[in-house]
Amino acid sequence: MRNKFKLLVAAAAVVALSLTGCAASGGGEADKPFKVIAFTSGNQTPVGAWWVKAVTAKAKELGWDLTMIQGDFDFQKMNPAVESAIGQGADVILDGYTDYASIGSIVSAAKDAGIPIFAMDSGTEPTDAFVSNVTTDQQGIVDSTVEALSTELGGLKGKNVMIIGHDPHPGIRMRAGLAEEAFKAAGANIAGGEIQKVQSPATGRTEALALVADYLAANPNGLDAVWVGWDDAALGASKALAEAGSSAKVTGVDATSEAIAEITAGGNFLATIEQPWPAILDTVIGYIVTYQKDGTLPSTNFETVGTTLVNKVNAAKITPSDKL
């Protein structure tokens, strides 16, 4: 008896929900507020958290009807949420920091519904999944960090460089690969013969610390530089170097406040990269506004933006990525 009653209540609830759902989308058609679904899987990172705030603010300013979905790095949770939002209808979708490889089901749902996806930093290569993906220039990042190390060390020929990457992150994976090529081309030796890999971003700092400490134990004075794909792990590497009394230099990417503080202090941490996220977001928002006006899509579905090397000279002027 009781079970049947429960079932009835559940059924009633479902009907009621679907009715209100229909009503909402119907009303949307009538008033024509511009409907935007924005999602990111990286909302637990400082930059992701900034992005959620910034997009919400912009949407308010532009009078958009915004649905913001935060994925907590959990695609099993995020993708269905985004897809059901798509089911309720939208004008555009905005993807922040979520690689297209992880959101195949969202991409096809959007295609079926005829909704364009605008993206920022959501993959390192052009793809039909997005009408636009604005990201940073990985080659540029590698060029400026490698050059900074080269200048500091007086050339890279014969120097021992460790590269620390993290494959599941497409950006880090790509730039670590590019860095390996660049160092090899400059005549440097790659420590350990290959890119060293951190297994989990959560423990990136301790993993990098152990990697460098153990390498130095096995090869005392065996390092001239450590190139790391992101600042959190770079901070672990620079700590290991400092503790071992090594004077080797470290570069990272992200320009976190902690990294900037280290750079300013003048230890092993030589430089990091600032990626101009606010400017990139403005660009993407601009594309959406244009599309909203007359349906014009950006001319290319992939573009890269230059970055800024952060070293001791300009460190004071940079806004850290976790303080955006």
Partner: peptide, 16 residues
């Protein structure tokens, strides 16, 4: 001690 050792604290450090 982990926070002191790393000089930093994040929500997920040491999760392993």
């Amino acid at each position: 001690l982990l926070a002191a050792r790393l000089g930093s604290a994040s929500a997920v450090q040491g999760s392993d």
